[in-house]
Structure formats: C-alpha cells, structure tokens
C-alpha cells in the first residue's frame, strides 16, 4: 500500500500515469475516501495527466487523527503531501469538504495551483446543508457497500457494518471533526475566496442541496464557470464519466 509519512499522519495515496508532465491532485470529501475518484474519474484524467489521489487523515486507509480537521490543517496536509511528492504546482480538484480544502489551499498558495475544480462543495455557514451533506456521505458509503442502494443497511455484512460503525464512532465521537467543521462557518464570507485568481470550474448536481453554494462561488470567484450535471450531492458516483470528461476538458483547455 503506497503511503507517505507526513508530520502528523501516515497518508495513503494512489498515483496513476506517474511519468506525465503535469499533475492533477484530487481531494475527496468527509466520510468518503479516494475510491470516489479511483475507478472512473481518475483513469479518464490519467490518459494525459499524472493523477494523485489520497485519503484524508482519518479516512480510507490513512492514519487516524483525533484533531486537525479544520481547513487550515487539512490544507497543510495537502501542501505537505505536495512537498513530499515534489509537486511544485498542480491542477487541483476537490469534492464536497475536499473542495473547501482546495479553495483554502488556492487562497493560501495560489502559485501552487494551475486550475481549480470544485465539485459539490457546501457553504459551511449553512449548517443545515452541512448536515445534509453528512447524511449524503453516509448514504454514499451505503451506496458503495450495497450497490444500487436496493439493499437496506440491515442487509450489510457484519464485518462491513462494524467497520463502518467504527469509522463513524471515531470521527464523530472521538475526533474534533464536527467542531473543526463548525468553526469554518464563515469561510465563504471572510475566507478570501473573492481573491482566488484561478480559472475555476464549479460542478454541481441539478438536484443538489448545495446549489446555492455553487452560485455563490460563481459570483465570488472572478474566473469561475458553473456546470450543472444530472444528480444530487452524489454526482461523482452518479455521473462519474460526465465529471471525468468535464474535468479533463477543463484542464486541457489553455487560455
């Protein structure tokens, strides 16, 4: 299992098309893992780019961490990973909370980002939406585990239920993830988003609860374009090929 030891955590990552000249770095959301990109979206991008996927700390196969789920710390983790992989600048894509981490990184280190793609990131001020995202994320896991969602969680195997239960128990009860996410509620209003200079693609589901966040980001970011695709917050699973191709076209296009 490929891992990188960062100052506070061991990070699991996957790379595709390692020899390519330019890199796409992809950040998943809370309560999911890098598999959201791995099967369909990343291979489309890997036709041309070096693609780096990683599990955020506390998620997937990365090490657990009780603290540091705020955007600054998560952005520090992303930057440390870039440094460890000797990536000076990347095309950066983030889904949901991973998109907020991408935005934070673009604000702090614009020189390290070539273009920015934000998929279904919520406005942290809208706690109701954040809770919905939470629920969606849980459903996403169920979806991953059970396929079409035509099996209820009760039909999940014992090992899988226990595994999932342990993840939620740890993140929601033993880590600071909830408080850390709540402390970011003013991120859209005072986080410097309007200063983001990058060409930015915003991708949202037509039926998503996060659409207003997409509209707000489009208004705040100078060079942003908003793309709607069929589906709700789960569009990476619902429309992976549409998203993969949209990202590839966006990164491919030169000004």
């Amino acid at each position: 299992m490929p891992v990188v030891d960062l100052p506070h955590t061991r990070i699991h990552l996957q790379e595709m098309n390692k020899g390519a000249a330019e890199t796409v770095l992809m950040v998943h959301g809370m309560f999911t893992n890098l598999s959201i990109w791995y099967f369909n979206i990343a291979p489309i991008l890997a036709e041309r780019y070096h693609v780096v996927l990683y599990d955020l700390k506390g998620h997937g196969m990365s090490g657990r961490s009780q603290h540091g789920y705020d955007l600054q710390s998560m952005s520090d983790e992303l930057l440390a990973l870039m440094e460890a992989l000797q990536l000076t600048s990347v095309y950066l894509a983030g889904y949901s909370y991973g998109g907020l981490i991408a935005l934070k990184t673009a604000i702090r280190h614009p020189e390290k980002i070539k273009k920015l793609a934000i998929i279904e990131s919520p406005n942290p001020y809208e706690q109701e939406t954040m809770n919905v995202v939470d629920v969606y994320s849980k459903e996403l896991l169920v979806h991953f585990v059970n396929g079409q969602g035509d099996h209820s969680p009760a039909k999940m195997g014992k090992r899988q239920l226990e595994r999932r239960h342990r993840l939620y128990e740890f993140l929601l009860k033993e880590s600071s993830i909830r408080q850390d996410m709540q402390q970011e509620r003013h991120f859209f209003s005072n986080g410097g988003i309007k200063d983001i200079p990058h060409e930015t693609l915003l991708i949202y589901g037509k039926d998503s609860d996060c659409i207003s966040a997409g509209l707000e980001l489009q208004e705040k970011i100078k060079d942003a374009r908003l793309l709607f695709v069929n589906g709700d917050h789960n569009i990476p699973v619902q429309e992976p090929f549409t998203i993969g191709n949209a990202l590839k076209d966006f990164f491919d296009t030169q000004d």
């Binding site: 299992m1 490929p2 996957q14 595709m16 893992n33 890098l34 598999s35 959201i36 791995y38 099967f39 369909n40 291979p43 489309i44 599990d55 997937g60 196969m61 896991l141 991953f144 585990v145 999940m156 195997g157 014992k158 090992r159 899988q160 595994r163 999932r164």
Partner: peptide, 29 residues
C-alpha cells in the same frame, strides 16, 4: 463484504502482481 477502498487495495495487488500484461484499472474504468 468488501467496500470500495478494499476493492482499490485489491486492484493494486492485481496490478502489481500481473504487471504490464493486463490493464486492470483500464478494464474496471
């Protein structure tokens, strides 16, 4: 009872073992 991240780990093992003879990720994609 494997979840998606375990299928990723499994895929990597298949790729590492069978090497360039098969494009396992390409097939899955």
């Amino acid at each position: 009872e494997m979840d998606s991240i375990e299928i990723v780990a499994f895929s990597e093992k298949v790729k590492n073992y069978f090497g360039k003879d098969i494009d396992f990720t390409g097939w899955l994609s």
